[in-house]
Design a protein around this nucleic acid. Structure first.
Lengths: 216, 216
DNA sequence: ATTAAAAATTAGGCTGACCTAAAAATAAAG
DNA sequence: CTTTATTTTTAGGTCAGCCTAATTTTTAAT
């Protein structure tokens, strides 16, 4: 049974190593977890002892199969709770992250599965991010971002990248919601910024913003 | 902001001091929290420093208004979550306690109030225990136990005393559920045990068991 | 009222999870 | 290929929350 802190480390490693299982550096973890490098080193030694990560001093860490499984379970809970908060308790899109950070550590497999059933076994959370199944397997989906869409094409907003509540607030402020139709009118060659039609309005989105919006 | 441990101590003091705000002893707390007296003493000093309790060494402890408020908020969350688990996720009566012990520490006033609304602002949890309102005020109700019911009277099961999962299991095993009608047929004078009719069946309940069943 | 028993507190230690400062290893620059 | 800069680790300290053992206070019993 990992502690709350250990769960947060495992989750951070999962996030930072991406799908490719690339090793993660001490400083990356320290930045993400808002802690100091020395604390990270110490924790990594403990996680390695428990066989949840493979850790080579100075070289980085990656998750063991057991660690990956634990991290996926935490992520599953996080995304299920986010779904619950938005769909059942009518929270705003951008308010759910912090609360889900707490709820994700509740330890009760029965609760998790009942919650999933209650929500109709969703495969994606309100941000459009995939929810791992009870075995830690992600539903895969063509993950296309708005920035990949050429001028002239119409797309549906599927979600936004999770984790940055400033961005979530910005998107909401623009009036863009899940399921909305967007049409890319033009892409500026020099900075990849896009002119996008959203209903009546014409919006300008930076390349960075466009890369954080998932579309279908 | 109380820590998780501090919340548990406050909740335990609230429970043990009852409605009369009687002072609670170190050993009572140690027993309830499954910890050692020395640990309790240490924590009480800390709680007193934070003005959540009034603590007189060797004399006992009771909650300050601020501490009582914090404890009531935790209890409110506990009972709301129990209600959620039973009514929405179809947990059994006796399975919810442990999970609610975790959920009660989630800190988000907005979540608590949305959850309460989602459940229709219940005043009693599935065990029949009262849920304090957001200001820590309990709905009061004539709290009658089965042991107070004289022979010949018919009553409805309103709930059972929370906290002892052995007892919850026993009640369920007897087939008694919330809302069931019971008729006290006889009370044995020598040990106060009761013969109770439950539908077709005739049950014998000890005085101790009867004192733990709330009726209306 | 004294003594024995029970309850509570103090003293001193341990662990997890953090920190700062110093040292060591790796990477980057001349 | 050295030297410098950056990253990482080690060393040593703090704090919350628990523990055992020893001491003190209170309560109960003679």
């Amino acid at each position: 049974m990992p502690s709350l802190s250990e769960e947060n480390y495992l989750k951070a490693i999962l996030f930072l190593s991406g799908q490719a299982q690339e090793p993660v550096s001490t400083s990356e973890l320290a930045a993400r977890l808002e802690t100091k490098a020395a604390s990270v080193t110490e924790m990594l030694r403990r996680l390695a002892e428990k066989k949840w990560v493979e850790y080579r001093p100075y070289k980085g860490v990656y998750l063991s199969p057991a660690g990956r499984d634990l991290a996926a379970k935490v992520l599953r809970k996080h995304r299920l709770w986010e779904t619950f908060l938005v769909e059942k308790l009518h929270f705003g899109w951008e308010e759910v992250h912090e609360v889900a950070e707490q709820l994700e550590h509740i330890s009760s497999p029965k609760l998790t599965e009942r919650l999933s059933a209650f929500l109709g076994h969703p495969e994606y959370d309100p941000h459009g991010d995939p929810i791992p199944d009870p075995n830690g397997v992600f539903p895969k989906r063509p993950k296309r971002t708005l920035s990949e869409v050429p001028a002239g094409e119409k797309v549906l907003v599927q979600g936004v990248r999770d984790g940055d509540s400033d961005f979530l607030r910005y998107v909401r402020q623009l009036g863009i919601a899940l399921g909305d139709e967007l049409e890319v009118e033009a892409v500026q060659p020099f900075d990849q910024s896009q002119q996008v039609r959203h209903g009546e309005r014409l919006l300008t989105l930076s390349a960075i913003a466009a890369a954080n919006i998932y579309v279908l």
